[in-house]
């Protein structure tokens, strides 16, 4: 008796997940070699939730808190629109960043030594604010008003808040060290809990 279409197709359509995964890893390596990737990304677990790290050929362009449902997809869609759609998961470009962040979370690193791509920080003032943040030392904090003064625009306190909220590279550019004048942490892309946690980590280390 002849087989049915269903029997034939279920055999021919049985996908091998391990084979596909290996092929995808190989594709990412080939794309890196061919120089055709706009963005390479990885995800990593951290004490402040799932992080997505993305790099262009110029440097790390995005650190995103991706813990929510659909968080990774939403971040990648936004990156595709801003930096180009040729995006693949590929670890090579981000090895240094994941190592340095792991050291930071372990209390073993106070500064990052990574090439950064600030393409996603639009506007001169926003870049000025981001440029001022690394001078707030590990374990210290500054108020939004103090950062506004340090950029030469003492009245732009709210704009400093916006620049911090839109920081494309949280953790690497330490916007978590900018707090309210009354000393409370204030808002943060990763949530106020994460901000408190980072400040505690830095004061304990």
């Amino acid at each position: 008796m002849a087989a049915t279409d269903e029997q034939v197709l279920s055999a021919l359509r049985s996908d091998d997940a391990a084979e596909l995964l290996a092929l995808r890893l190989r594709l990412a390596e080939s794309a890196e070699r061919a120089g055709t990737l706009d963005v390479a990304y990885v995800t990593m677990e951290s004490p402040v939730g799932l992080l997505l790290l993305a790099a262009t050929g110029r440097g790390i362009a995005r650190v995103a808190f991706a813990g929510d449902d659909g968080g990774v997809d939403a971040v990648l869609t936004a990156l595709a629109a801003r930096l180009g759609p040729r995006i693949l998961r590929s670890a090579a470009r981000l090895d240094d960043a994941t190592v340095q962040l792991s050291e930071y979370f372990a209390g073993a690193r106070r500064e990052f030594d990574l090439p950064l791509d600030l393409t996603l920080a639009v506007g001169a003032f926003r870049r000025d604010v981001l440029g001022a943040l690394p001078s707030i030392a590990y374990g210290a904090t500054a108020s939004y008003a103090e950062v506004a003064r340090s950029t030469g625009r003492p009245l732009a306190v709210r704009a400093v808040g916006t620049a911090c909220a839109l920081n494309p590279l949280p953790l690497l550019i330490p916007c978590h060290r900018v707090v309210r004048s009354d000393g409370t942490p204030g808002s943060y892309a990763g949530g106020p809990e994460a901000k408190r946690r980072l400040l505690d980590l830095e004061s304990a280390a």
Partner: peptide, 12 residues
């Protein structure tokens, strides 16, 4: 759509 999603969707 990021290319990663294209591979995910159409790779199999």
């Amino acid at each position: 759509m990021p290319f990663e999603a294209v591979v995910q969707l159409h790779g199999p």
